[in-house]
């Protein structure tokens, strides 16, 4: 069963991940499976903050300052995205 991501958790890019910011996107490569992905907009911002070692709650707080959406919506969407990143083995517990 997939692990549910909790708001208090800290996640980090997995050791097998290589990524670069290209224009306004994060291009992410899983060096083990050779699968590649991209994130843009708020997804890119979440990824940058995650890479800086921020917790999910800190990320939601930063997004709330920058984006025109409520904290509830931002938290729900961030957790959805992080669960997806976890399922694809792009992030792991910090």
């Amino acid at each position: 069963m997939p692990t549910k991501t909790r708001p208090t958790e800290k996640l980090k890019p997995s050791a097998k991940i290589a990524w670069r910011k290209v224009a306004d996107e994060a291009v992410i490569l899983n060096t083990e499976t050779a699968a590649y992905y991209s994130l843009d907009g708020a997804g890119l911002r979440i990824w940058e903050l995650l890479s800086e070692g921020r917790s999910i709650e800190e990320i939601v707080g930063t997004l709330a300052d920058e984006y025109d959406a409520s904290s509830e919506v931002l938290r729900r969407d961030a957790l959805d995205l992080l669960s997806n990143l976890r399922k694809e083995k792009i992030v792991e517990p910090a």
Binding site: L29, G41, A42, Y67, D68, A69
Partner: peptide
Amino acid sequence: GKKPYKKPQLSKHGVLSIVE
């Protein structure tokens, strides 16, 4: 003073193949 928000989505583009 805020950016318009759109739900973030992970886009998967496929698997890279190495050509020797």
